[in-house]
């Protein structure tokens, strides 16, 4: 079965981001596939490469990047949610004349249409609330 996930919680504030990550791993272990993981609302902070957690805590953006690299999963942060929260890729940084970009590896920044597309192409869309 093809799954997509909608992630709304803020990493380091809400457990739901961790639950979603475990769920993602369990879907793959069960032989299902992940079409897209869409980060919306405070979930977009999962794409902040500049997160510097202490050594005994998980680097949540890096965990998602690694999962995407290993299983070729599409990680999308919603552009409207991300830009106003300061999560930005190099193209948008240039457009808005910002001095730096911080979108983590294997994430892309795109519109809500990617959530609608994920819904069309997936058997299940599971929401992980904040």
């Amino acid at each position: 079965m093809q799954f997509s996930l909608l992630i709304l919680g803020s990493p380091y504030s809400s457990q739901s981001v961790g639950t979603a990550h475990r769920f993602a791993e369990a879907t793959l272990e069960s032989g299902h596939s992940l079409y897209r993981i869409f980060f919306y609302h405070d979930g977009v902070y999962c794409g902040n490469q500049l997160s510097c957690p202490p050594q005994d805590e998980p680097n949540i953006p890096a965990q998602w990047s690694a999962l995407a690299a290993q299983h070729d999963i599409d990680l999308v942060v919603c552009i409207a949610s991300a830009l106003k929260r300061g999560v930005i890729d190099s193209d948008e940084a240039e457009r808005y004349e910002q001095s730096a970009a911080n979108l983590a590896a294997n994430f892309s920044i795109s519109g809500l249409g990617q959530l609608i597309d994920a819904n069309i192409h997936s058997d299940r869309v599971i929401t992980f609330g904040p």
Binding site: S81, G111, L112, G113, L115, I116, D117, I120
Partner: peptide
């Protein structure tokens, strides 16, 4: 508000 944005996007699609 974000729910409304999802609805409007779905309508466009």
């Amino acid at each position: 508000r974000e729910a409304l944005d999802v609805a409007l996007t779905a309508a466009v699609f």
